[in-house]
Design a protein around this nucleic acid. Structure first.
Lengths: 257, 257
DNA sequence: GTCTGTGAATACATTCACAGCC
DNA sequence: GGCTGTGAATGTATTCACAGAC
């Protein structure tokens, strides 16, 4: 998962488990697609397939929201779209600021998926004076100096940090001081925030590392064993420390199997 | 979470729980920072703080890797960096292709975090003929026609999809057919892949929706109750269906509290 | 007969708390 | 005395399997 909350014990939110909350947007996307094709009802099985989960999980998830289906029939698509949107808070408007308008910030600003839900990009903010005033995705980039003013004037409660790692904590502190209580962090740093502020992080390199872990295991599992991929990388031997034991026995002197 | 695996039951991978695997990159980042500052050893408490987890969890996580610490002292930084890198497969070289060189693809290509671990961007691929040959992050963009050739010639096993949603499944199919077994998907679609192929997804709008959910709850919890944020958004009344019951009783005619 | 909604069963993850080693 | 490593206890999430509504 590219993700993780920070404050607030992982206790259920108004009875809805976190794992379920994290899947609601998935269901919503699948339902929206059905709605656009004017499909009136859908079974848990069909919807689950479209969302990439299994049907028992989906039904359990929906049971936390209420009894919105009809036995023997399925779920009314429009009705469910509304209920999930409401549950997620998407029936209201969420002004968002994006701080750090490099490639990633620009990509986010241009990303259609925001506007289509209740999210509205209220401002783009960058520390580079040369960027100030330049239009990105139809909005003029504002300078960091105006951050507090922008946040309070627009009633922004969600901030997106797309700055380099070094600037992230400082930006975060200013966002929080200005009144923001939810942060989506793309910088590869652990942010520290006061209680009551939610942080979610998206870390591209972490995702790749998790893939590499599984990829490595696949290679090891192969019947021909281990040598498919040339050991091209860093031949680095293990530093120091003889005689430690891992779960498989002693540390190999050179590379793992 | 911006994330989720697809194939392979969520069974432990060589004894290491998925949740632990997902945290190893975090520990590795914190350890790398310590290593750069030439810190020789670190306690579970210090490292946990740096990584943003609690120390019991960290110790449990490390216990799956082996007994790499010293009681009364802590962990040797260099040694742990090596062990975790090895476990994650980062001691070898992973050529990666990025497909879809828009803003997001360019951001990924320029992202330093890839190269610094074992990941090497082998090629950038885009379907737009006008992009072909243009340099992005120092690499010439290649046309989609050459996808299969690029993948097989470079022994690429990890593909990153940064195309629009509509193109993602098709690109995915071609990557898989060309031999790729791990995919990082940024397009907001559920990809279907054969067994043995891992997919992780990063979905920006899903993260925002999860934040909105919690943000909405904060507003509801406030002592002044509910009305802090002007109800600016879509006043849309619930469609159809009278008399359904949610967990809090009947569906409100207009907006939730 | 079909398909939802949900207790009960299982699997997974986190936290506690302390024995054991330095 | 300090800190790791880990069983036992608790908390969450997923899956099973079937009663009950249509």
């Amino acid at each position: 998962m590219a993700t993780g909350r920070t404050h607030r014990p992982a206790t259920r939110s108004r009875g809805i488990p976190e794992a379920t909350v994290a899947r609601l947007p998935l269901y919503l996307r699948a339902l929206t697609a059905l709605s656009e094709r004017s499909v009136p009802t859908v079974s848990s099985e069909e919807l689950a397939t479209a969302a990439g989960v299994n049907s028992a999980k989906l039904r359990k998830d929906f049971s936390y929201l209420g009894s919105y289906g009809t036995r023997g029939v399925g779920y009314d698509v429009e009705y469910l779209v509304y209920q999930i949107s409401r549950e997620l808070g998407l029936t209201q408007d969420w002004p968002v600021v994006i701080v750090g308008i490099g490639n990633l910030g620009a990509a986010l600003a241009n990303y259609g998926g925001f506007a289509s839900r209740g999210f509205r990009v209220a401002a783009l903010i960058d520390a580079d004076p040369a960027m100030a005033g330049k239009p990105v995705a139809g909005l003029p980039v504002r300078h960091t100096d105006d951050l507090e003013e922008i946040v309070s004037e627009n009633g922004v409660s969600i901030g997106v940090i797309a700055t380099p790692a070094g600037a992230a904590q400082q930006v975060c502190d200013r966002l929080v001081a200005a009144g923001i209580t939810s942060i989506l962090n793309f910088a590869p740093t652990v942010l520290s925030v006061p209680d009551g502020v939610d942080v979610r992080k998206v870390d591209l390199s972490i995702e790749l590392q998790i893939l590499a872990f599984h990829e490595q295991r696949k290679a090891g599992e192969e019947t021909g064993a281990a040598v498919r991929r040339a050991v091209a990388g860093r031949p680095a031997a293990a530093p120091g420390r003889e005689g430690r034991k891992g779960p498989d026995g002693d540390v190999p002197a050179v590379m793992p199997a």
